[in-house]
């Protein structure tokens, strides 16, 4: 999560006056987080860097649009998510992701795989091959579900803050988060179940 205690040190008025030191502080405090969000949204470092640069360029030029109702970090996340979604739409054209798993009538994903892989040692769960799979699994999520999941579970925003960033209701955040979490669980269960079988043929 972005260090909110440090956020108080930046006076938005200094940013509006285009004071370089204040802006540099904003960049230093938030660049890691914005980069990570871009990387996990887009799936590659070059796009993540583009999103990062674009986010701070927009923030610099549009600081007057920051009304102070949210934290500066939330405002930056909003710019970054919009940039990421725009890039994804441009890339994919009309291609849309289908949520994996079994969907209930109301669109909820039901757990399908019931295998307990928690017993696998942490070393194996976080091996380089496992990490690769974890990162790929995040990319299988729909763009909307992935954004909600990353903001809540990776960046540590509250449901309210996530709703603000995505401009949706809190209940919509919860639905997307739930679908994302369950789908990731399915993906990782299939992967780790195979590891258990390999270990105990």
């Amino acid at each position: 999560m972005i260090q909110n205690s440090k956020q108080h040190d930046i006076d938005p008025a200094d940013l509006r006056r285009k004071e370089k030191a204040a802006f540099a502080q904003l960049v230093n405090q938030n660049s890691d987080h914005i980069y990570r969000l871009g990387l996990k949204m887009l799936g590659n470092p070059q796009d993540a860097e583009d999103i990062l640069q674009e986010t701070f360029i927009k923030a610099y030029h549009h600081i007057d649009g920051f009304e102070g109702r949210s934290k500066l970090s939330t405002w930056l996340y909003r710019i970054a998510v919009n940039e990421a979604l725009m890039l994804l739409r441009k890339r994919k054209g009309s291609v849309t992701h289908l949520d994996a798993g079994i969907e209930m009538e109301n669109g909820d994903v039901l757990p399908h795989q019931i295998i307990d892989w928690c017993c696998l040692p942490e070393k194996e769960l976080l091996s380089s091959e496992s990490r690769q799979k974890i990162q790929e699994a995040v990319q299988t999520l729909s763009d909307a579900n992935r954004a909600a999941f990353l903001l809540r579970d990776v960046e540590g925003l509250s449901t309210r803050e996530t709703a603000d960033v995505l401009d949706i209701s809190e209940s919509a955040v919860k639905v997307r988060l739930m679908r994302a979490r369950l789908q990731l669980r399915e993906e990782l269960t299939v992967f780790f179940a195979n590891r258990i079988v390999k270990e105990n043929p």
Binding site: W117, L125, V154
Partner: peptide, 14 residues
């Protein structure tokens, strides 16, 4: 348990 572990793993990786 596997849902909690899933979230934990993505967080650690992130």
């Amino acid at each position: 348990n596997t849902l909690k572990k899933t979230i934990h793993l993505v967080q650690v990786d992130g």
